[in-house]
Deep mutational scan, measured.
Amino acid sequence: DVEPGKFYKGVVTRIEKYGAFINLNEQVRGLLRPRDMISLRAENLNVGDEIIVQAIDVRPEKREIDFKYIP
């Protein structure tokens, strides 16, 4: 289970104008929005990159997770 405030290692699987999709594993995926990329620009991300993200909002009923990148 993903808990708000905890840090996780994930892999960038898709990049859109509104953010990057980060997979923690095959069943868990969330969104890293540009406003939550402190000191990281979306254009510096590539599909396949491994990054550490913090879960900031977890909505299990919608199967949605928002992440924040903190260097």
Rank of each mutant, 00 (worst) to 15 (best):
D1W: 15
D1Q: 13
D1C: 15
D1L: 14
V2Y: 08
V2W: 06
E3Q: 14
P4G: 05
P4E: 09
P4W: 07
P4D: 05
P4C: 13
P4S: 09
G5K: 03
G5D: 03
G5C: 13
K6F: 08
F7I: 08
F7W: 11
F7A: 03
F7C: 13
F7S: 06
Y8N: 00
Y8G: 00
K9H: 10
K9M: 09
K9A: 07
K9C: 15
G10V: 10
G10H: 01
G10C: 08
V11C: 08
V11R: 10
V11A: 01
V12H: 00
T13Q: 04
T13S: 10
T13C: 09
R14W: 07
R14I: 05
R14L: 07
I15P: 00
I15K: 05
E16F: 13
E16S: 14
E16N: 14
E16T: 15
E16K: 08
K17E: 11
K17A: 12
K17Q: 10
K17Y: 12
K17W: 15
Y18G: 06
Y18N: 06
Y18Q: 07
Y18E: 09
G19R: 08
G19H: 07
A20G: 01
A20T: 08
A20M: 10
A20R: 01
A20P: 01
F21Y: 14
F21H: 05
F21R: 02
F21P: 00
F21M: 07
I22D: 00
I22P: 00
I22A: 01
I22Q: 00
I22L: 03
I22W: 02
I22N: 00
N23L: 11
N23Y: 12
N23H: 12
N23Q: 14
L24N: 00
L24Q: 00
L24Y: 01
N25P: 03
N25I: 07
N25F: 09
E26Q: 13
E26T: 13
E26W: 14
Q27S: 13
Q27G: 12
Q27M: 12
Q27I: 12
V28D: 05
V28S: 04
V28K: 02
V28T: 11
R29F: 11
R29P: 03
R29A: 10
R29Q: 14
G30Y: 04
G30C: 10
G30S: 15
G30E: 03
G30M: 06
L31F: 08
L31T: 05
L32I: 08
L32R: 02
L32Q: 02
L32F: 05
L32P: 02
L32M: 06
R33C: 09
R33T: 04
P34L: 15
P34W: 15
P34R: 15
P34S: 14
P34C: 15
R35I: 09
R35K: 13
R35S: 10
R35E: 10
R35L: 08
D36I: 09
D36W: 11
M37Q: 05
M37T: 05
M37V: 07
M37N: 06
I38W: 06
I38C: 14
I38N: 13
I38G: 15
S39V: 10
S39R: 13
S39H: 14
S39K: 13
L40C: 11
L40F: 09
L40Q: 05
L40W: 08
R41S: 12
R41L: 13
R41Q: 12
R41H: 10
A42L: 15
A42Q: 12
E43P: 08
E43T: 11
N44T: 13
N44P: 08
L45D: 00
L45Y: 04
L45A: 01
N46F: 11
N46I: 09
N46L: 10
N46C: 14
N46W: 10
V47R: 02
V47H: 02
V47A: 03
V47T: 04
G48W: 04
G48T: 01
D49G: 02
D49Q: 10
D49N: 04
D49F: 07
E50T: 15
E50V: 15
E50L: 14
E50W: 15
I51N: 00
I51K: 00
I51V: 08
I52Q: 04
I52F: 08
V53R: 00
V53A: 01
V53F: 05
V53D: 00
Q54F: 13
Q54Y: 12
Q54P: 01
Q54A: 05
Q54N: 03
A55D: 01
A55L: 08
A55F: 07
A55C: 15
A55S: 02
A55T: 05
A55P: 02
I56L: 12
I56Y: 11
I56T: 08
I56P: 01
I56F: 08
I56R: 05
D57G: 14
D57C: 13
D57V: 13
D57P: 03
D57M: 13
D57K: 15
V58R: 04
V58M: 05
V58L: 05
R59A: 04
R59P: 02
R59K: 05
R59S: 05
P60R: 09
P60M: 10
E61T: 09
E61H: 11
E61N: 11
K62I: 08
K62V: 10
K62H: 08
K62R: 12
K62E: 08
R63Q: 13
R63A: 11
R63G: 15
R63T: 07
E64Q: 14
E64A: 06
E64V: 08
E64D: 04
E64R: 10
I65Q: 03
I65R: 03
I65D: 04
I65E: 03
I65S: 02
I65G: 03
D66I: 15
D66R: 14
D66M: 13
F67T: 03
F67M: 04
F67Q: 04
K68W: 06
K68Q: 09
K68H: 05
Y69C: 07
Y69Q: 07
Y69H: 06
Y69W: 10
I70H: 09
I70Y: 12
I70P: 04
I70A: 09
I70V: 14
I70T: 09
I70G: 05
I70E: 08
P71W: 10
P71T: 11
P71S: 14
P71D: 11
P71I: 09
P71A: 14
P71Q: 10
